[in-house]
Simulated assay, not measured.
Amino acid sequence: MRRAVAEPLVRVEAATLAYRDRRVLDRVDLALRAGETLALLGPNGAGKTSLTRLVAGRLAPQSGTVRVGGADPFRVRAARCAIGWVPQEIALYPRLTVAENLGVFAQLSGLARRQRAGAVAEAMALTDIAAVARRPVGLLSGGYQRRVNIAASLMGRPGLVLLDEPTQGVDLTARAAIHAVLGRLREAGTAILIATHDFAEAERLADRVAFMAQGRIAREGALADLLAHLRAGAPEHEVALSLPATPAGEAALRRAGFSPSDTPLTWRAATRAGQGLDGAALLGSLRAQGVSANEVRVRAPGLEALYLDALAPRPADGPLRLTGAVR
């Protein structure tokens, strides 16, 4: 007997949104189940934040539907109360202590007075911020402020938490602490939707990923399945430079099959590069052409390679490929 698949907690169907006659979301479909973490990735302006705001009930689509727990979060207050929204900006009162901030948000979430102290204590324990409960938020480090920001979203004990760039601007220690918080939420059965530019973060946290561009989902699916399919092909080559490439060096790198990454000192090729040369021979060839290459790395493709493939221009009419699997 086949086991029934749980109905998604979040379901977005054919959602379209426009600002001043500019379409920012174009018939987007998305689903998210309880206990699942979905990472939204895409360039600036792709529609990640707009989609997150639709799911949060801050906006309503011009067409299509958004449902959280079967209800429209824009029109049904109870549905919005079941959602924890963590914006990219720190949305706290800097002169109030951590505990005072959380007490305010507990009240705003509609909790009865007798429930607030327990909710505050529970959120502080989950986010590991009890040690700074009596300190003003404005005096905390950026990492602690972001954890308090997350704690504030948990006052209503939501089944869904939405986060927009939750580790932006924090150091590695704070980043690890925030990731631990999200891991504990997931273990508790909370559904998590996270918009991020950080490939390592998404690869570490997400069960599923959705790549967005031009207001559409270009590709979506289980991260493990998408990576397994990609890694069945050629390994990824990466060149690390000691100095940014000169115009002649850039030309040599492109002839060898490389493209610039998010840093000027790293160039990548999603498929085997260098006309079949091994790593040492390829390094020597690039250096002979004036490229300041420190090393050539050969490794299994990661999430960035999957992202670049998903958002690469397509032949013919050039529309983004809408699919849930790598073809």
Rank of each mutant, 00 (worst) to 15 (best):
R3Q: 13
V5G: 01
A6N: 03
A6W: 03
L17M: 11
R22M: 09
L32R: 08
L32I: 12
A34Y: 12
G35R: 07
L41I: 13
P43E: 11
P43I: 03
G45S: 02
A46E: 09
K48L: 14
R53D: 07
A56L: 07
R58E: 13
S63R: 15
V66Q: 08
P73C: 10
A78F: 10
A78I: 09
R80V: 02
I83Q: 02
G84D: 02
L96F: 09
G103T: 14
R116L: 09
A123R: 00
P136A: 08
L139V: 10
L139I: 01
L139C: 08
G142T: 04
G143W: 09
R146I: 08
R146S: 05
A151V: 00
L154E: 03
L172H: 14
A176F: 11
G183I: 04
A188P: 02
T196H: 05
A202L: 02
R204Q: 14
L205F: 00
D207W: 03
V209D: 01
A218H: 12
G221T: 05
L241D: 10
A245N: 00
A248M: 04
A251T: 15
G257Q: 10
F258C: 11
S259I: 07
P260Q: 04
S261E: 10
L265W: 04
L277I: 03
G279E: 15
L282D: 05
Q289H: 01
V298E: 07
R299E: 07
A300I: 00
A300S: 04
D309R: 13
L311S: 12
G318E: 02
P319N: 12
G324F: 03
A325H: 14
V326N: 12
R327Y: 05
